[in-house]
């Protein structure tokens, strides 16, 4: 249904606009700059890549994905969470404690599970190239370090607008509700909310350390990202350009994950320097959380598909 893609087959120059939400310092963008350079060089400037960070072109992932789907934007790198609205299989990533470690996540996403999910997207007019990551999401609050689910009792907890997330936190005893990201800082400062959860990078880049005292490395959700183009647009590119883009996407993935890991370590230290008290969950403690979220798995396993969940769990 996208005619602009077909008209382009005979063209001798291509513009790829990449719109995403994170700021210029974050790993996704830093690695995209290398991606841009490599693609432009390897195609002798036939392809030009323009980056629009900070949500300057599209203010939300949902909107950017939709624009790619409509053929109005060539590429975006959203978090996978909003993709669940486009394809319910992607809800698998919303499940708590799905992956034990980064390595497990990488091997699942770069292997059969990832491939199956990327293929799924073609039904939605989207072409997923590779999975990147925002890292594990962690919890923070202003009361005390979190060690067991009962520590969440009664906390006014901000979650993303996502039914699995809200269900998980409510299962652990929190009073969870979604709130627009832009209102979060003030809400925490004023005490409208007591607690939040996000990847390390956001605590640092958005200065949440100023309004949150305790950070617990729960790693309860693994936040993947995905490099997306329009399916027709990609398939109508000349094959040599397609393979350059696919290869450089894979280089971007390796590069981005490496920078992300480095930044997480660096920024975690900065958060401690800023006065956040950081604690980690032991495997036993994680096990308790995991057991208390069984109801969430039971509730959503039919919609997501048990085989996808098993594939993810097998990577651990």
């Amino acid at each position: 249904n996208d005619s602009s893609g077909e008209a382009k087959t005979s063209k001798d120059s291509y513009e790829i606009r990449v719109a995403h939400l994170v700021n210029e310092k974050q790993s996704t963008h830093v690695a995209l700059e290398d991606f841009k350079k490599a693609v432009e060089e390897r195609t002798d400037g036939k392809v030009s890549v323009t980056l629009y960070p900070n949500g300057s072109l599209y203010a939300s992932d949902r909107e950017a994905i939709e624009a790619v789907q409509l053929g109005n934007l060539e590429m975006t790198v959203p978090a996978v969470a909003p993709l669940a609205n486009f394809n319910s299989k992607f809800m698998v990533f919303d499940l708590p404690f799905l992956f034990d470690s980064r390595d497990a996540a990488h091997s699942a996403l770069d292997g059969e599970l990832g491939q199956q999910l990327l293929t799924e997207l073609e039904q939605n007019d989207l072409k997923g190239l590779v999975f990147g990551e925002n890292g594990f999401r962690n919890m923070s609050n202003n009361e005390a370090p979190i060690e067991e689910p009962s520590d969440l009792d009664g906390l006014k907890f901000r979650t993303m607008s996502n039914p699995v997330h809200t269900a998980s936190f409510n299962a652990w005893g929190a009073n969870a509700s979604p709130l627009a990201f832009g209102e979060l800082y003030t809400a925490l400062q004023q005490g409208t909310y007591d607690a939040m959860e996000s990847p390390i990078s956001l605590y640092y880049t958005q200065k949440f350390y100023e309004v949150q005292d305790y950070l617990t490395k729960t790693g309860h959700f693994y936040a993947a990202t995905v490099m997306l183009t329009n399916n027709d647009y990609f398939n109508n590119l000349p094959e040599d350009i397609q393979s350059v883009i696919q290869e450089e996407a894979e280089n971007w993935r390796a590069n981005q994950r490496e920078i992300a890991a480095k930044q997480d370590a660096e920024w975690l230290k900065s958060l401690q320097d800023e006065g956040m008290k950081v604690n980690e969950l032991s495997d036993e403690q994680k096990q308790v959380f995991m057991e208390e979220s069984q109801s969430v798995y039971d509730k959503f396993s039919d919609e997501i598909g048990q085989n996808l969940i098993d594939m993810a769990k097998d990577a651990n």
């Binding site: 939300s60 909107e63 939709e66 624009a67 409509l70 053929g71 109005n72 627009a180 209102e183």
Partner: peptide, 18 residues
């Protein structure tokens, strides 16, 4: 571009609780 951009933005720009 396609003019669906204008239609899309006519929606998304107003999709805000504040």
């Amino acid at each position: 571009f396609s003019l669906t951009i204008v239609a899309q933005r006519a929606f998304t720009s107003l999709d805000s609780f504040p």
